[in-house]
Design a protein around this nucleic acid. Structure first.
Lengths: 189, 189
DNA sequence: ACATAATGGCTATTGACAATAGCTAATTGG
DNA sequence: CCAATTAGCTATTGTCAATAGCCATTATGT
């Protein structure tokens, strides 16, 4: 019996790929195994069942998205940083429609890795917002507002809820500009 | 064999209830049947399998949410209408965390009922926004912005993503006020 | 080099669940 | 009060995740 050369990383990566391609909400071990030309139980040597597999994809998705957002915000400040980050966020989601929903899963509190990557995402947003001089509760409210707007748009868009034949790019730009304006005026209301 | 007195409406309603209570993403026919003290195959006399059951819950959820939003907007205009609708939207979602995700599912195009209830939701938002004098593409962009903000917040909230010990009510109020401000200034950007 | 350990993938099996076919008992209409 | 319909049942099949236990392959240590 020739070896297929599996590894935890390879299995998780392939699963994430299948998830993005086939659009379904979860990968079956059956499909995943088939994609390697391998039987289901073999996967258990590398991944702890469906649960462990999903956890692996989720961790990699969250940290990947965080990196992309950081990258987009580096060297920019305030409005420019927001715009860059927003576009990067949306593009990542459009490229990874299957993985995206996993990035908004609340962290499991007794999973240290999950908590770490999850707080990292919020930290990026938080840092970008620090340029507006927002503190404490105001910063939290603003972060929630920004996340809500981005997540809402992307979630509806990848879910196919924007069906009218109106340019989604333009709608997103308008949304980002509205958010930027609101953040600039945050102290006033 | 005494009859349990099932009906399509009763089955769908109970399923929606279980969905909200047990927080999971879907109801199993096993649990649903058990809740009636009935065997699985009996459900097929009232509902067309898991698919048909989900469709039933989705239709009822979408029209229920639409009614609640309409109710909240009646007799109000502009900012007041938005505020009322936003609060009603969020409250409905918080009360129905299981059903809520079904309300943002894109309509299946060859399902006339689905298309009808789905366009009804958008129509409510559209009508409320008509008070701002927005037309054509602007109205679409604004509708998408409003839906994105509301859905994003509620989705993150019911998903448990807002974990910091900061008042979520306040965050939501700030979000609504930001949206209202943005809508009032829509033409300017 | 070769024995021994560690590892990778297999078959077989169990258990949960959806789904269908076909039966029988309860209800309802003339 | 009998006939037709309907509701719920048992039995069965098929899919999938998961576990147990087997054997082949690769790596290691003297």
């Amino acid at each position: 019996m020739p070896r297929a050369g599996l590894s935890t990383a390879a299995v998780v990566e392939r699963a994430a790929q299948l998830l993005d391609e086939q659009g379904s909400e979860s990968v079956s071990l059956a499909d995943l195994a088939a994609s390697f030309g391998v039987k289901i139980p073999s996967l258990y040597k590398h991944v702890d069942g469906v649960r462990g597999l999903q956890r692996g994809i989720m961790l990699s998705a969250k940290s990947d998205l965080t990196a992309v957002m950081e990258q987009a915000a580096v060297g920019r400040a305030r409005d420019d940083a927001i715009r860059g980050m927003a576009v990067a966020y949306r593009n990542w989601a459009l490229r990874h429609p299957g993985q995206y929903p996993l990035t908004v899963r609340a962290p499991v509190q007794d999973d240290a890795d999950d908590v770490a990557v999850s707080t990292a995402i919020v930290a990026v947003v938080f840092t970008v917002l620090s340029g507006y001089g927002l503190r404490d509760d105001d910063a939290v409210d603003a972060t929630r507002f920004l996340r809500s707007a981005l997540h809402g748009f992307v979630s509806l868009e990848t879910g196919g809820a924007f069906e009218l034949p109106v340019d989604r790019e333009r709608s997103f730009s308008k949304l980002v500009e509205s958010v930027v304006t609101a953040l600039a005026a945050w102290r006033n209301d």
